[in-house]
C-alpha cells in the first residue's frame, strides 16, 4: 500500500520527502483530536504513520473524520486533487502495539493519565527497536514521570504539539531528567521536517507556553473581579492597545473554559500550589454551569444567538 502511494507523489510532497529524518514508519498513539492531527501532519510530509488506538472502532471514526475534513478542503480547492487519498494512504491503523516493531519514533497522545502512559511506555520499550525514540505529546504530565522506571529513560522525550496540530506552528521539545541528547536532536529534527518551529525546554510544569500564558487569563479575570474594567473593555484593550489577536476572554472561549481550567489546575498543583498560578473561581463556576465557551454556544460571550 505504501509503495503505490509513493509512486503518485505530488512534486511539492516529493520535495518535502527529501527532508524526512527517517524512512522507517513513525507511530502515533491515540486517535483523539491531537493524535489524528499529528498523524495527519506526519502523513502530509511523507511519513508512513502507524496510528494506534485500543479499538478498530475508534480508529475508523478518527480516520473517517480526517477523510471528511481533507475531502472538504480538496473540494474547495485548498488542497491538491488526490491529496486526501495520498495522505490517508500513508496512515496505517492498528489496534495492537506489536505492530510498532519497526518504527523509528513513537508519539504518544493517549489520555492524560500517568498510569496509562507508564503502562504503554513499558510495553513500547519491549516492542519498538532499541534505537526508536519514544515521545509523549503530554501537556500536563512530567516527561520524567513517564520515563521513570523504564530501562532506557534516555529515549523518552516530550514532543508537545498545539491544538489544532495541523495549523499551529509550534512544537515544544521537552527534555526529562534522563532524556538523552540524541533523542532530543531526533525529535527536534522530526518536528522541523513537519514544517514546525521548535522551542526546546526542560521538564517543568506547563513547559513554556502553558506556564507563561497563565497570567494572561488570570490577570484578565482578576481585573474584572476588581472592577478595573469590564471583560469587553479588557478584550478590546488587548486587541487595539496590545495587538493581541484576541483578548483573554475571547481566547478562553475559543480554547474552552473547561480545558483552560484544567491546565490552570494542573500547573497550580504541579508547583505545590504556587499561589500565582491559582485558578480563578469564576472559571470553575462557568464549568459547573456548562458554559465552556464557543463549543457550547456560551462562555464569557454568547455564540448561540
Amino acid at each position: 500500500m505504501q509503495g503505490s502511494c509513493n509512486a503518485t507523489l505530488h512534486p511539492e510532497v516529493k520535495e518535502m520527502e527529501k527532508r524526512l529524518v527517517t524512512s522507517r514508519p513513525v507511530a502515533v498513539l491515540g486517535g483523539g483530536t491531537m493524535g489524528i492531527g499529528i498523524a495527519q501532519v506526519a502523513a502530509e510530509q511523507g511519513y508512513t504513520v502507524r496510528l494506534y488506538d485500543i479499538t478498530d472502532d475508534v480508529l475508523d471514526k478518527a480516520l473517517a473524520g480526517l477523510r471528511g475534513r481533507l475531502e472538504k478542503l480538496e473540494q474547495k480547492g485548498k488542497r491538491p486533487a488526490g491529496d486526501t487519498e495520498l495522505v490517508l494512504g500513508r496512515i496505517v491503523p492498528t489496534s495492537t502495539l506489536d505492530a510498532l516493531h519497526d518504527v523509528a519514533l513513537v508519539i504518544e497522545a493517549v489520555p492524560e493519565k500517568l498510569e496509562l502512559k507508564r503502562a504503554i511506555f513499558s510495553q513500547l520499550e519491549a516492542i519498538c527497536p532499541p534505537d526508536a525514540v519514544l515521545a509523549s505529546n503530554t501537556s500536563s504530565i512530567p516527561i520524567t514521570a513517564i520515563a521513570g522506571g523504564l530501562k532506557s529513560p534516555e529515549r523518552v522525550v516530550g514532543l508537545h504539539f498545539f491544538n489544532p496540530a495541523p495549523l499551529m506552528k509550534l512544537v515544544e521539545v521537552i527534555s526529562g531528567m534522563h532524556t538523552g541528547a540524541e533523542a532530543v536532536a531526533f525529535a527536534d529534527a522530526f518536528a522541523i521536517t513537519l514544517g514546525k518551529t521548535t522551542a526546546k525546554c526542560i521538564d517543568t510544569p506547563g513547559f513554556i507556553v502553558n506556564r507563561v500564558a497563565r497570567g494572561f487569563y488570570g490577570e484578565g479575570l482578576r481585573l474584572v473581579q476588581e472592577g478595573v474594567a469590564t471583560k469587553e473593555q479588557i478584550d478590546k484593550i488587548a486587541r487595539l492597545g496590545g495587538n493581541f489577536r484576541m483578548g483573554p476572554f475571547e481566547l478562553m472561549d475559543l480554547i474552552g473554559i473547561d480545558v483552560n481550567l484544567s491546565v490552570s489546575q494542573s500547573v497550580y498543583h504541579a508547583t505545590y500550589e504556587e499561589q500565582r498560578y491559582r485558578p480563578n473561581p469564576i472559571q470553575e463556576r462557568m464549568v459547573h454551569a456548562g458554559d465552556f465557551g464557543r463549543k457550547t454556544g456560551r462562555g464569557f460571550y454568547r455564540y448561540d444567538q
Partner: peptide
C-alpha cells in the same frame, strides 16, 4: 532564570504557541 528554556525559545514559543504579538 530557572533555566527552563533560553530567551529565543521562550519568545518563539509564546509567539507561535499562543499567537502573542
Amino acid at each position: 532564570v530557572e533555566g527552563v528554556a533560553n530567551a529565543d525559545d521562550i519568545d518563539i514559543a509564546m509567539k507561535l504557541g499562543t499567537n502573542y504579538p
